[in-house]
Design a binder for these strands. Structure first.
Lengths: 148, 148
DNA sequence: CGGAATCCGCGGTGATACTG
DNA sequence: CAGTATCACCGCGGATTCCG
């Protein structure tokens, strides 16, 4: 029974050194945990969007709120802080009479921003396609494996 | 008080027609909702990872479980089904005596896969950097804007 | 203006057990 | 092998309120 599972995961053990070959095929299990961690942080509903929106220059708190209609102050602040802790964005507070705070991408965050942009672009490009597929298959699961 | 917020978001209103310029700068609010939707689906802890892992060829259910250590049957099945509904992956069931089911990327899913790979690659490349940053700033927030 | 604090619900998520 | 079903948890995330 074990030989069947060797389909393509045979390199699981020695994949440790194979990380350079492909970033995805045979991912070293040791890194999986952290990758998941990053993926989770990045995929927490707002982070990527925030990174994507933060593109050009420093943005103020209110600006971010305007650019991301659905977000609440709570989530904006929370996500902002998280991103800052990870070193993806910088927070600059000017202790002026009308308090002003600006958020900007760090070089590290800029790298992620490109990916975020790709993702947003992909979503925008295929959103109708996905919607069609989703509508077509929504609540349309036969009992089991039909269509061979 | 209103003129201060015009920093760079002045194009917020007419950005609707500016969608073709940049995928990210001044995102049309109309698409935001769906982008968030896609982003959320894609960022639901497992989807991207699954897409990334599904890279080369068809994989069986058990293979996927092996490749993604932390996932439960429930989440695997759920995510799989969701991705299938969105037309990102295909599910092929062979009604054999030992039931065999193979999952593979669709062309659409392959597009996302590239992005997922980028993201995973990015995470792997900067995971230590992020960790440092995170450790450095963890529970180290002064009362307010220190370091200008 | 930019947040912090609190309350609270929803659903994502994981164990476990069972089925075909 | 490849799921499905049920349960129970907890943390994300939204709404609201208050502070500097």
């Amino acid at each position: 029974m074990e030989q069947t599972r060797e389909t393509k995961a045979a390199g699981g053990a020695e994949a440790v050194g194979a990380a350079a070959i492909g970033p995805c095929a045979a991912i070293p299990a040791e890194h999986m945990a952290f990758i998941r961690e990053v993926l989770d942080r990045v995929g927490d509903k707002w982070s990527l969007l925030l990174i994507a929106v933060l593109e050009p220059g420093p943005l103020r708190y209110t600006d971010l709120q305007r650019q991301i209609p659905g977000i609440s102050q709570r989530m904006l602040t929370l996500t902002l802080r998280q991103l800052q802790q990870d070193g993806l964005i910088t927070r600059t507070a000017y202790a002026e009479v009308p308090p002003r705070v600006e958020y900007a991408l760090t070089p590290l965050g800029r790298g992620l921003h490109e990916i975020a942009t790709s993702l947003v672009g992909w979503a925008a490009a295929h959103h109708d396609e996905i919607r069609e597929n989703r509508a077509r298959t929504t609540s349309a699961q036969p009992s089991a494996g039909t269509r061979a």
